[in-house]
């Protein structure tokens, strides 16, 4: 029962794609640029919802969108000028932020020079709040909306600064605990030997 249904969807989508002013597709030029520039394997989920890009039937791909999402998709695709609110269901927040910032028209032009996208992005924006700006993550091939992904050294320093207080507390707790433990052990040892010498002297 399932296949005829999917099949009809397929026709519908194909029609939709062909009738739209611009054929919708992923822009692998950017992915290729990131991989080349950062030497990191990166997939389409860098900007898209799905790791294999927008085309397909899985969640976050065009085949799985409902009517409301299709509308949002259409709106996002017509955001040619910068500054329009973009909420495409096939893009992740970083993808949406790119289109919102530079506009679809400029973005399409940039396909030939993906490296020029970086200076156009908001240098202060940090979607995942990991302390590394999105632009830097774009150039380094680390995920801009995953706070656990980033240049390890930078992540370490950022988190170290953020967590100084708990670290200081833990450090003092460890030092105090070890100090206490040492003296307890030494005390036990001394007490044990003291009782031995006492036994000897009383004998």
């Amino acid at each position: 029962m399932k296949h005829p249904f999917r099949y009809r969807w397929g026709i519908f989508l194909t029609l939709l794609l062909w009738t739209s002013t611009m054929r919708l597709r992923a822009y692998p030029e950017f992915r290729e640029f990131i991989v080349k520039h950062s030497q990191k394997p990166v997939n389409c989920a860098f900007c898209h919802q799905h790791s294999d890009g927008p085309e397909g039937m899985a969640a976050g791909q065009i085949g799985a969108l409902n009517a409301d999402q299709l509308q949002r998709l259409a709106r996002a695709r017509s955001a040619f000028e910068p500054g329009q609110a973009v909420d495409s269901p096939v893009l992740n927040p970083f993808g949406n932020s790119i289109i919102q910032r530079v506009g679809k028209k400029k973005f399409l032009e940039l396909r030939l020079h993906p490296s020029e996208l970086a200076p156009l992005l908001d240098p202060a924006s940090d979607l995942d709040q990991d302390g590394i700006p999105d632009v830097k993550e774009y150039l380094e091939g680390t995920h801009p909306v995953n706070p656990n992904d980033g240049n390890p050294r930078m992540l370490f320093w950022v988190n170290l600064k953020r967590n100084l207080l708990p670290l200081a507390m833990t450090f003092s707790a460890t030092v105090a605990g070890l100090f206490g433990l040492f003296h307890l052990l030494r005390g036990f040892d001394r007490a044990a030997r003291l009782s031995i010498t006492k036994e000897i002297t009383t004998e």
Partner: peptide, 13 residues
């Protein structure tokens, strides 16, 4: 453990 997510040493995909 507090400052460096283990995952940061790998590519996210």
């Amino acid at each position: 453990a507090l400052c460096l997510p283990f995952e940061a040493l790998y590519a996210y995909p």
